[in-house]
Design a protein around this nucleic acid. Structure first.
Length: 582
DNA sequence: GCCGTTTTCGGCCCGACTGTTTTCAGTCG
């Protein structure tokens, strides 16, 4: 776990225990907000705490009280208040909050009146059937808890963006065939392009809501209907994913899509803004606030509801790209006008062929790039240390480069093909080929593949050395992390971005959904430093190009303007930069 | 606990669905 993740957990634990003991809900929420702010910070928060206390307090959501706790943790590795709070409840009780359907009230009932003090104890008591008679725990509630426990064991949390998107598209296709359907969109964290997705949210409009809900319940792969009403259905798929459908009338679609896209925090900001302007915002529209709840049920006509643009406009705002709706300052400081778009990407600068561990020959890879409308592709097979990936030694690389240049010549009217390498950054920061070998190539991506558990300071030095190497164009997947599976390196990204900006080296956002490396918060640091960013699919086959949208979404979440993305430059500008390193 | 285009005090978003405590609490997003 990264240090930020550890520290965030301290605040999450404080929030959980406060919640369980019935503390003020806003106080609980404030701690959860701090946990989120820490988790989403691209820099090491403990380091900020020691170096610049004022800057720590300038992070939204972190006030004086939380700042003191963070400073305490940075100095001692502990937070006394957290330890004291945790001592007041049995060790396993906070874990009960992770069970879907169990909130603080039910956990407190289970614990204090039922003697249930852990998830294991809960499972045992459910099996033994000795939980009947607790207040609020009827047979259906107990059954729902039992199902939720089974689901927890089967699925373990969030899935990667690249797994969730195809599932969402398949469900959308099912809805598209329902008679009377008007508009369908995915929403939630999926639409915001987050790297992992908790569940799939869909919003649909049409004339026959009941038919839409029936279609979702009967869709292929659905194994359980969790809830289904007139406007909302939740189902579980055979792969353990929850899919939520909300239906609305088409003239309210924009308000519903806005609402269900979130983030929750962005929505709260919008509602607060609406409130200040004498309006009221919910999933049915933006209404004049007459002091009464649920205007939509009283026949009130919304001021805006049909499209998201209408709602933002009525609130005096420009439409906000979904990837930016995270309450990361997007309402105060509008994101760049030329925020990167998928159609801006015209070059692939990191891919593999059969020379190392790819599945396509050079020419087939080039053809695929042409088919995708790219003006440039760099062929970058693995270097010699990647023996398991059939990495090339200097002699094979020379032959390979000659073959790439042959293909380049044959295709020169259609696309520019660069002979390159993805050269390993070794543990000591040196590269896997001597300089004269690299100098003979057109393009060099330098990436860490091994020693990915190095200390942050060592990782920073190692990557700085690669950035300072005069023949390197791009640092590939700089941290080496695998989403949900490997933490990778934790270098000082702000420092790397500053150095890379000075030397015109691009840091990569690897678009593969397993990697998304750099991640969104790192991109934000790159943008602040004015550092170039490369977005590459790291394609090993034709289908891998399809992952590009995930990389673009990650870059957009980091507010990347097209002007800083080398893959979005026209051919002349890109090649001038490529040649500047030779 | 946090925060400021009414504010350094007094607020802090809003609705759907479910099950059960028969009029609403709990959970979720």
């Amino acid at each position: 776990m990264s240090r930020n993740a550890e520290l965030a957990q301290v605040f999450a634990e404080i929030a959980d225990v406060l919640d369980l003991t019935g503390a003020n809900a806003f106080r609980v929420n404030a701690h959860r907000k701090v946990a989120r702010a820490i988790e989403e910070c691209g820099e090491d928060v403990a380091t900020i705490a020691l170096a610049d206390p004022a800057r720590l307090r300038s992070i939204p959501g972190i006030g004086d009280s939380s700042a003191h706790k963070i400073e305490e943790w940075a100095r001692t590795g502990r937070v006394a208040e957290r330890d004291e709070l945790l001592a007041t409840v049995p060790t396993g009780v906070p874990g009960l909050l992770q069970v879907p359907g169990l909130g603080p009230k039910r956990v407190r009932t289970l614990w204090q009146e039922g003697g249930v003090d852990s998830v294991d104890a809960l499972r045992a008591r459910l099996t033994a059937g000795t939980l009947g008679g607790l207040p609020g725990m009827g047979p259906k509630t107990l059954k729902a808890i039992e199902d939720a426990l089974r689901f927890m064991e089967a699925s373990r949390g969030r899935v990667r963006l690249g797994e969730a998107m195809p599932v969402a598209m398949a469900f959308a296709e099912v809805l598209r065939r329902v008679p009377g359907v008007k508009r369908i969109s995915h929403a939630g964290s999926l639409r915001r392009g987050r790297e992992t997705i908790g569940d799939i949210d869909l919003v649909a409009s049409g004339t026959d809501h009941a038919a839409l809900h029936a279609a979702i319940r009967a869709a292929p792969g659905v194994v359980q209907v969790i809830a289904s009403g007139e406007t909302k259905t939740s189902v579980r798929t055979d792969r353990g994913l929850q899919v939520d459908l909300r239906t609305v009338d088409d003239d309210r679609f924009g308000a519903a899509l806005l609402y269900f896209t979130g983030s929750k925090e962005h929505n709260v900001r919008l509602r607060e803004r609406a409130q200040r302007m004498g309006m009221r915002l919910n999933e049915y529209g933006l209404f004049t606030d007459d002091g009464e709840a649920a205007p939509q049920d009283r026949g009130a006509i919304p001021l805006a509801a049909k499209d998201e643009e209408d709602v933002y406009r009525a609130l005096g705002l420009r439409w906000m790209p979904p990837e930016l709706r995270e309450d990361h300052g997007e309402l105060e400081r509008h994101p760049p006008e030329d925020l990167l778009r998928i159609e801006d990407i015209r070059a692939e600068l990191h891919c593999h062929t059969t020379a190392s561990d790819g599945t396509l020959e050079i020419e087939a890879m080039v053809q695929e790039a042409v088919r995708r409308g790219f003006h440039t592709i760099a062929i970058t097979d693995h270097s010699r240390s990647q023996a398991q990936a059939n990495g090339l030694d200097a002699a094979r690389l020379a032959t390979h480069a000659a073959a790439i240049r042959e293909v380049a010549k044959a295709w020169s009217k259609r696309i520019t093909v660069l002979a390159g390498s993805e050269v390993d950054i070794l543990a000591d920061g040196s590269l896997d080929y001597p300089d004269e070998v690299l100098a003979a190539l057109d393009f060099v991506v330098a990436s860490p593949h091994s020693a990915l558990r190095a200390e942050p300071a060592a990782a920073t030095e190692r990557l700085l050395a690669a950035i300072r190497h005069p023949l390197v164009h791009v640092i590939g997947h700089p941290t080496g992390r695998i989403v949900g599976a490997r933490e990778g390196l934790s270098p000082d990204i702000a420092l790397l971005a500053k150095e890379a900006a000075a030397r015109k080296v691009a840091l990569e956002v690897n678009a593969n959904a397993m990697r998304l490396d750099l991640r969104d918060s790192h991109v934000r640091l790159c943008v602040e430093a004015g550092c170039l960013v490369a977005i590459d699919t790291d394609a090993h086959g034709a289908g891998d190009f399809d992952e590009l949208p995930y990389g673009v979404a990650t870059a957009r979440r980091g507010w990347l303007p097209a002007s800083l993305c080398v893959n979005a430059w026209d051919r002349d500008r890109l090649l001038a930069w490529v040649r500047s390193k030779r």
